[in-house]
């Protein structure tokens, strides 16, 4: 076995800073879904109040803490890059995943924008290949940047002959 120190360098680009509030709102919504019913019930049903408000407070505190801290961390961890030959992304911290899809094998380029995303001017670009496991998802690009990227990728893939399998 060769003794080399070869390693992957992280992709160059971070996602748009607006992903921070976007992630935060998502986390807050996820927190609110259990907390609000618990709080309302707790207000209405006096005998069970400690049993309902207790968990509500715990979930709310954890959720708020996560909403403040997690996005900052995610923003640092998740990265992406598009070169002339490939799309490259890194996601996750505990389970890091690097995905590389070569330009010549890209089949479709989808740009999607959820209601929450568009409120923050963000878009998601999904690059798929002919493999069911090969998709690279770039979540949280500025939507103009995403449109330009999708256009560029589509141009490059259109110029590639063959059926990319």
């Amino acid at each position: 076995m060769k003794e080399t120190g070869t390693r992957l360098r992280p992709p160059r680009n971070q996602f748009d800073r607006r992903t921070l509030p976007w992630w935060r709102v998502q986390l807050l919504i996820a927190t609110a879904v259990p907390v609000i019913p618990l709080a309302v019930l707790g207000a209405l049903i006096a005998p069970a109040r400690p049993w309902l408000l207790g968990p509500a407070i715990v979930i709310a505190v954890v959720g708020l803490a996560a909403a403040v801290a997690m996005p900052i961390w995610w923003h640092r961890v998740h990265r992406w890059e598009v070169t002339d030959t490939a799309v490259y992304s890194l996601t996750g911290y505990f389970w890091r995943t690097w995905r590389i899809a070569p330009m010549s094998r890209i089949q479709t380029v989808d740009t999607t924008r959820g209601p929450l995303q568009s409120a923050f001017g963000l878009s998601t670009v999904v690059v798929t290949t002919a493999s069911s496991a090969g998709a690279v998802k770039l979540e949280g690009l500025d939507h103009e940047q995403a449109a330009a990227l999708a256009e560029r990728l589509t141009e490059i893939t259109d110029a590639t002959p063959g059926d990319a399998t």
Binding site: L8, Y93, F94, W95, R96, T97, W98, R99, I100, A101, P102, R105, T129, A130, S131, A133, G134, V136, A164, T165
Partner: peptide
């Protein structure tokens, strides 16, 4: 020639 991308994973 049938490899159309890499997915490299490393857990903590």
């Amino acid at each position: 020639s049938g490899i159309i991308g890499w997915r490299i994973k490393q857990s903590v």
